[in-house]
Computed example of a mutant assay.
Amino acid sequence: MSALGSKLWRSQLGGLMFMCPGCEYSHVVHAAGEGWAGPTWGFNDDGDRPTFAPSVLVTTGRAVDPTFVPEDGDPPEICHSFVTDGRIQFLGDCTHALAGQTVELPDWSES
């Protein structure tokens, strides 16, 4: 991985990673023009104040697989947000505690 400004990292597998303070783990998006065959996002090329469009929707567990059986009580997760000018606006369908809030995107840390 390599840093792209203070908020993003380029994944070795392709894509841009940012740390989500709601999920407390990273999310990956692929910028348009990267040659990625799947969904892509517009990106303003600013690793310190990134903007991605359209919204970023991350789902896990039962949210994407109705046969999912959580381990140790892990609930299904939905994280739906807009990342604009280095801030992340969590939409109301998020299943974490930051749903409905807008916060600064945290600086990326390798630790």
Rank of each mutant, 00 (worst) to 15 (best):
L4S: 11
M17F: 05
N44A: 04
M17I: 09
L8F: 05
G15N: 06
S2D: 14
C79G: 08
L4Y: 14
L105P: 04
L13K: 14
V69Y: 05
L57T: 13
C79I: 13
C20L: 03
S11Y: 00
T102H: 07
M17S: 07
V29T: 10
Q12V: 13
A32M: 06
P50W: 00
P70S: 08
D46F: 01
I78S: 01
P75L: 12
F52P: 09
V83P: 03
F18V: 04
G92I: 09
F18R: 00
G35Y: 02
P54H: 06
Q89A: 15
T60H: 07
V29W: 00
D107N: 08
D45C: 05
S109V: 15
T102L: 04
G15K: 01
A37M: 07
W108E: 00
P76S: 12
L13C: 12
V83C: 03
V103Q: 06
D74W: 15
S111M: 04
E77N: 13
C20E: 07
P39D: 13
D46P: 03
A99S: 06
S26G: 10
M1K: 11
F68Q: 05
D45N: 12
F90C: 03
V56H: 00
S109Y: 06
G92S: 14
V64N: 08
G86V: 06
E104F: 11
A3E: 12
I88K: 04
L98C: 01
T51C: 09
V56Y: 02
T51L: 04
L91K: 02
Q12I: 12
G35E: 04
D74I: 15
P75S: 11
R87T: 12
A63W: 05
G86P: 08
T95Y: 10
V29M: 02
